[in-house]
């Protein structure tokens, strides 16, 4: 019952978020210079031709009217048609989304796989080789932009040593380099947090109890302390995952991957209002859903927080 109420509350919040974001994106995209009718009609078009295009794509009616009718559409989960290609925006997103979400998932998993063990090791063996290694790793990870890392990885592992394909899609292998470029910076953040959290937990009193109980050091560290140390890590990892959807836009460009990012980027270039609006709202909804799942997961692993 409590859980149902929690879900309802979050849904309401989601609707509000979408409403606010839709308003902002609707007006912002129209304020920036550029008219989709001009893009479609071409530079040589006459006034009449341009007006005809406007009438077709619906930018001839007053702004308020456009806005209301568009809100009505998204309330029915219909993002309309692309102003440029005329294809359904829903269909375009549906085609591109699997690639982007796979990329983000692989990125975050790579990040977790690198960061959590290294963070724990850094905390357990403080001031050892692994700790310094972890520090250097996270410094670099936070300082290096992901697109640059992507280019370097391509040069190294696709051109100089052709282990991975240079571009294209079709196999998991195509996604490893982009996922790594995307996950590297996330790993840096997760690593720092894991280390800090683990160091803090190891200094807590219940660790003394665990030792006084005669448990082995492995049990003390990896059963007692780690369980508590991972609680904040889950939240941060979830938020990082949300950011990855945004980060994917750049990485898809570097690796020429036909994902959501590229779709929306071209939408912006061509002033494809409906596509950009639909894309932004879609990302916002996915981001909110991820946060919701993280909150649920957090309450599962942290017994002190029960959903209420």
């Amino acid at each position: 019952m409590k859980f149902l109420l929690f879900v309802l509350k979050r849904l309401l919040r989601l609707v509000l978020t979408v409403l606010i974001i839709s308003t902002i994106i609707f007006f912002v995209i129209r304020v920036i210079p550029g008219d989709p009718a001009l893009v479609i009609a071409g530079v040589d078009a006459s006034e009449e031709e341009i007006d005809a295009v406007r009438a077709r794509i619906g930018t001839d009616v007053p702004l308020g009217e456009q806005y209301v009718s568009w809100l009505g559409d998204i309330a029915r989960f219909d993002f309309g048609e692309s102003m440029i290609s005329g294809e359904s925006v829903n269909k375009l997103i549906y085609e591109r989304f699997p690639l982007t979400i796979t990329l983000a998932f692989m990125g975050i998993i790579l990040g977790i796989v690198i960061a959590i063990p290294l963070g724990v090791l850094s905390a357990v063996k403080r001031w050892s080789f692994w700790d310094y290694f972890g520090m250097v790793f996270s410094q670099i990870g936070m300082a290096v932009p992901s697109f640059w890392l992507g280019i370097i990885l391509l040069l190294l592992f696709a051109v100089r040593f052709p282990i991975f394909p240079l571009f294209g899609i079709g196999s998991l292998k195509h996604l490893i380099l982009p996922a790594f470029s995307l996950g590297f910076a996330r790993a840096a953040v997760i690593l720092r947090l894991t280390r800090a959290s683990m160091v803090e937990e190891l200094s807590k009193e219940y660790v003394i109890t665990a030792r006084a109980k005669g448990l082995t050091e492995t049990m003390v560290k990896y059963k007692h302390a780690l369980r508590n140390a991972l609680i904040p890590v889950v939240t941060i990892t979830g938020i990082q995952f949300g950011y990855m959807l945004g980060g994917a836009i750049i990485i898809e460009q570097v690796f020429s991957l036909p994902g959501l990012g590229r779709l929306f980027l071209y939408g912006i270039y061509q002033r494809d209002f409906t596509l950009v609006q639909g894309g932004v709202i879609f990302i916002a909804v996915v981001f909110s859903l991820v946060n919701f799942l993280v909150d649920v997961l957090y309450s599962v692993i942290n017994p002190r927080i029960r959903i209420s």
Binding site: E205, Y206, R227, I231, P303, R304
Partner: peptide, 8 residues
């Protein structure tokens, strides 16, 4: 403080 908060 001396009991593990995350363990039954």
């Amino acid at each position: 403080k001396y009991l593990n908060p995350a363990m039954k």
